[in-house]
Every structure is written in C-alpha cells, then in structure tokens.
Amino acid sequence: MSENTRVALVTGASGGIGRAVARRLAADGMAVGVHYAGNKTAADETVAGIEATGGRAIAVTGDVADAAAMTEAFDAVERAFGGIDVVVHTAGVMVLGPLADFDLDDFDRLTRTNVRGTFVVAQQAARRVRAGGAIIGFSTSVTRLSFPGYAAYAASKGAVEALIPVLARELRGRDITVNAVAPGPTATSLFLDGKDEETIARLAAQPPLERLGTPEDIAESVAFLAGPGRWVNGQVLFSNGGIA
C-alpha cells in the first residue's frame, strides 16, 4: 500500500448507510476498516465487495459503547494499514414510541449505543486521526422534523449535534475537521422496518425531490466531508433532499 493511501474506519459498515459509505470511500482510494457489531457475514461481504473492485479492507468488530472493544478495533485498523485518517461513525439503533409510554430500558439501550457509543468512538478518533483527516458523526433530520414517536431517538442524536462543534474546537491546530451528517428518510432496513406502504409513500413525497434518499446519496455527503470539504468544520450537514 502506498504511503499516501488514506485510511478510513467506518462503524456500522456491515449494511445500510455504513456499507454504502465504506464502498464510497474505497472508491476514492481509501483503505477501509469495516466495523460491525454482530453480523460478521455481512461485514465480510462488504470487505469482499471492496476487494473485488481493487480496494483494500478488513473487518473489525466491537460494541461501540465499550471503550476496550473500540480500542482494539482502532488498533486493528492501524496495524493493518499504518494509521487512520478518517473515522465515520454510522453505527446506531432506533427504537420508536410515544414519550409517555416509552420503555425506559429501551431508552437506556438506545442512549448507550447512540450517545455513549458516539462519545467512545469520537474519543478514540480524537486521539488517533492524523493531520489532514476528518471525523464524521451521524445525526438525523428528525431533530428538526420532530416526527411523533421519535422523541428518544431524536434526543440521542441531539447529543451528537452538541458534541460535534465542541470537538472541532478542541482539535484546533491539528488540521482535523469534525462534522456530522443528518440524513432524512432513507431507504434502509432501519428506516423501513415496521412502516406500512402508506407511511413510506407519504414520507417519500415530502422532499421537493419526491423520493426517499438512498444509502448512496448519504455516502456522497460523507465523501465530500471526508475529502474535498476541508473548509466545512464543526457543522451538521442535512442530507435529506430538502425535506427540512
């Protein structure tokens, strides 16, 4: 591998948006650490797809909220490729329900992954990403859309939006950008599961572009922030087709 090859670690890259991001960054010439939590088969398929097109990738695992596990995941990517330039944290969970009836055990599980997990990954990234690199978290357009039933999920992603500009300022002088992408309704299993066709059609009609986003749409926004978007820092990029 060339000394000039950039290296990315993408969490939650075994499927959905994370997989699309891993593939997109690999297409830009980056070596990619494909992180997964439970689905090793899907992660291995992502790696194989990247390698089939001439790219380099490895699969790494670990609970994003477990500091020791993520330390090992970052270590594995550094051992394989010599360093890390880009960290994209797509891993997350979504549990829906009205606030008044929301199960607090579900709330604890959601915040452990989405808030603590973001903090743990960002902490490792802040310690390791090389100069000229990028740290990219994931929020959601629901923080602005305020859909009923999304209180817990939106609250967890609001924490991500609060963290991003603080970390950008803490990394002053290191030539590292810190941003987040906030997708709108996107055709992934995470979004589609549990929704009937009428609900999906209604949401797809809301953006001026009159369709759901695709994982590849979101991956393009990530690729911009990971590559040429060097003057964008401490921001949340709403990638949602104009829905909000």
Rank of each mutant, 00 (worst) to 15 (best):
M1K: 12
E3Q: 09
E3W: 07
T5A: 10
V7P: 09
V7Y: 10
L9M: 11
L9V: 08
T11E: 04
G12V: 00
A13V: 01
G15A: 10
G15S: 14
I17M: 10
G18D: 05
R19P: 01
A20N: 12
A22T: 10
L25C: 06
A27H: 13
A27N: 10
D28N: 12
M30A: 09
V32P: 00
H35L: 06
Y36A: 08
Y36S: 06
A37M: 05
N39Y: 01
N39G: 02
T41G: 08
A43T: 12
T46N: 06
A48W: 01
A48I: 01
E51W: 08
E51H: 02
T53D: 13
T53P: 01
G55R: 07
A57F: 06
A59E: 06
V60C: 13
D63T: 06
D63P: 07
V64I: 15
V64T: 15
D66T: 14
A67Y: 15
A69W: 00
E72F: 03
A73G: 09
A73D: 04
F74M: 02
E78R: 12
A80S: 13
G82Y: 14
G82K: 11
I84M: 09
V86N: 03
V88F: 12
H89I: 00
H89R: 05
T90H: 06
A91H: 05
G92Y: 11
V95E: 08
L99C: 08
D101K: 15
F102C: 09
D103Q: 12
L104W: 08
F107M: 09
D108E: 15
R109M: 11
R116D: 11
T118Y: 03
V121F: 04
A122R: 02
A122K: 03
Q123V: 02
A125F: 07
A125Y: 05
A126H: 07
R127V: 07
A134L: 04
I135E: 00
I135D: 02
G137M: 03
S139V: 03
S141E: 03
T143Q: 00
T143M: 02
R144G: 00
L145E: 10
L145M: 15
S146T: 13
G149C: 05
A152E: 02
A152V: 11
A155M: 03
A155K: 00
G158N: 01
V166I: 13
A168Y: 14
I176M: 06
I176W: 07
A180W: 01
A182W: 14
P185A: 08
A187T: 05
D193Q: 11
D193N: 13
D193I: 02
D193W: 03
D196H: 11
E197W: 00
T199D: 05
R202D: 10
L203R: 10
Q206D: 04
Q206T: 04
Q206K: 15
P207R: 10
P207E: 10
R211D: 06
L212C: 08
G213A: 08
P215Y: 09
P215Q: 07
E216R: 14
E220Q: 14
F224R: 05
G227H: 09
G227S: 11
G229D: 01
W231K: 00
W231A: 01
V232L: 14
N233K: 10
N233C: 10
G234T: 15
L237Q: 11
F238I: 00
G241M: 09
G241T: 04
G242C: 04
G242A: 12
G242Y: 09
A244N: 08
A244F: 14
A244K: 01
A244M: 04
